[in-house]
Design a protein around this nucleic acid. Structure first.
Lengths: 344, 344
DNA sequence: CATAGTACCGTAAACGTTTACGGTGATCGA
DNA sequence: TCGATCACCGTAAACGTTTACGGTACTATG
């Protein structure tokens, strides 16, 4: 005798009533409900998730898909941990659990997702590292699995998304640097086809064009999103004959390596080259201090969770006016790294 | 008509045979097995996990419990991502999935674990951030849930564990610094009751004692395991009248903040104070280069997975001689940060 | 008092698997 | 030819829930 049956026997009532009492159904006497809850606590009863989800086709789990490989690690770390925390605070209100679905670097992300969905693992999903053309979107849409993405994509199936304001960052940065007299400005972009790279580079080019300048294709540096990538960017940059006077770093983690690369060549950000990047817990301890964009990762996680729940029938009424598609604003924190300016 | 029943109907055989074919049972004709597998692939059939786990009481999921809070983030980031990758490569061989169980910073870890277990969420667990006295151990042992911990504890319920060699690191570091003439050596430790702090500090004291020296309680700095913690340690250290000439940093992430704190006061590691810490992807880009310990996180993950599986009846025969309790060796990478030495 | 309505509860089916058990036809040895 | 063995397959129960449905006792209403 296990589970709900044990509880029912202990109370000498039917399992149906026990279930109703526990699930807050109206048609159960408040007195018996009290007894049931009491006994459940006493016996440490927790509903078996397999039985429950088999019956209702729902798992109370939301999956956040991530890759465990070392390549993506650079941006996967503390950033997501903080986002998770925001997501959790929202989910906790609805008794939903968040788990990170860890796709091994050895497995194809699309295959992995297929498996997860077919198994009926989660009621909803959060995707990140969205590719420019992302087959996962259509797959999920076809199966009617609610999901939200952190990152826009050209593949649009009507799902909600949140994204960082890469275009705004590009625009603001370029305007700022041009105002300081810079004409030859470099940008970085991730090495893969992740969508944010396109957004950032394209907008940088447009912003430069608005000032009558062009983005030299030779000054677009691809880099892996980690410290080593930044170091490599510095090396590439230093090898150029006609060195740029300013650079935009799209990724948060590469600044550290980039600084190191510069300093090994005797160069200093803010004195010899203007650098604008993005803030992170690590970058706060760079010297000279980094001029860069910042945002509340926790708030981002909250918004992400709300956008997802707003599209799930069971929860949508809680979030009637959630922002389903939002470009998240970022603030520029002024540091010393872009102090370098050129005579008008 | 769904699931296995659909598949069976499509092939015009019974669901029992389909199930046996898919699960590799011996008593099924190889020809029919081929047909079943073919049809399964064609129709994209994947067994429903709820049904399966309800029946067999097993989930094929291993959970890695983590906290999402920002405090622990400092050590939760890239370190675990790499460990995950190693764990995954082992699990993939057995069709086990690894998920990260994200305990919100707002929830008590013990309560969270209780919930996870009661729900029958995972077949096995990996715990990290082990406390000196960790109630989770006894709880899991009582329920006979297989688990392995990353980190020793005073609470021993016979479970396998792997741990970093904090005592070895302390010993090696102290010996090395004493040989360079240092007498007044500071150490750091995590701010909470996590076990590794005790191991590290105690062994440092013993190692000093072996040289006839003592560990000044005033030179034991508690810090949060992140960059800000390191910065704070530097400030505390600089405020001492009788400043130590060397310091051991137990955590990987604090070096960056510590460096920054020193440099703001015009001090330089390796010139004004000897620093020994632990390597991380970030620390590679510190200047002067950090003398510190390193290890293969991926291999650690592999060993962790093997130790866990060795204690699970269904898999133990695959790992007859897995190391169930191992202190993981680390290598010292010599950098410039401990170049500072004192006259004999 | 008869009827309708209400509040509460028990019964049993259903979710999708796995697997013990039994059954069928074929092969084989005597 | 006949039983025994074997390879293979179908049947049905079971895992722990939820929930539609129906039933009972009580209350209200006329």
């Amino acid at each position: 005798m296990t589970g709900i049956r044990r509880l029912a026997q202990h109370l000498d009532i039917s399992i149906g009533t026990v279930s109703r009492a526990l699930n807050g159904r109206p048609d159960v006497n408040e007195e018996t409900r009290r007894k049931v809850l009491e006994a459940a606590a006493e016996l440490g009863y927790v509903p078996n998730q397999s039985g429950r989800s088999l019956r209702q086709g729902t798992t109370n789990i939301i999956g956040f898909m991530m890759q465990t490989g070392t390549e993506i690690t650079g941006q996967g770390d503390t950033f997501f941990m903080s986002v998770f925390d925001g997501v959790q605070t929202v989910f906790a209100r609805h008794h939903l659990d968040l788990v990170a679905l860890l796709c091994s670097s050895e497995e194809d992300p699309d295959d992995y997702l297929r498996r997860v969905v077919a198994r009926g693992f989660a009621d909803g999903l959060i995707l990140s590292a969205t590719q420019r053309h992302d087959p996962r979107f259509e797959f999920l849409a076809k199966r009617k699995i609610p999901f939200v993405t952190l990152g826009r994509s050209l593949t649009d199936v009507g799902q909600p998304w949140l994204d960082l304001d890469f275009e705004g960052m590009a625009q603001t940065s370029i305007d700022r640097l041009v105002a300081k007299g810079h004409r030859r400005i470099a940008v970085t972009r991730p090495h893969d086809d992740i969508n944010l790279g396109h957004l950032f580079v394209d907008q940088s080019a447009r912003a430069l064009a608005a000032h009558g300048l062009t983005l030299d294709p030779d000054l677009i540096f691809s880099s892996k999103p980690n410290e080593a990538g930044g170091y490599h960017v510095a090396q590439q940059l230093l090898a150029k004959k006609d060195r740029p006077t300013a650079i935009l770093l799209v990724n948060e983690t590469i600044a550290i390596g980039f600084y190191r690369g510069l300093s090994e060549a005797g160069l200093k950000p803010g004195r010899d080259i203007a650098v604008i990047g993005r803030q992170s817990p690590q970058s706060h301890f760079l010297s000279p201090s980094l001029t860069g964009f910042t945002l509340s990762r926790r708030d981002l996680g909250i918004a992400l969770a709300e956008a997802l729940l707003a599209t799930m029938p069971a929860f949508s009424h809680f979030y009637p006016d959630a922002e389903l598609r939002k470009i998240w604003p970022e603030d520029l924190v002024e540091g010393e790294s872009d102090a370098f300016s050129l005579p008008g």
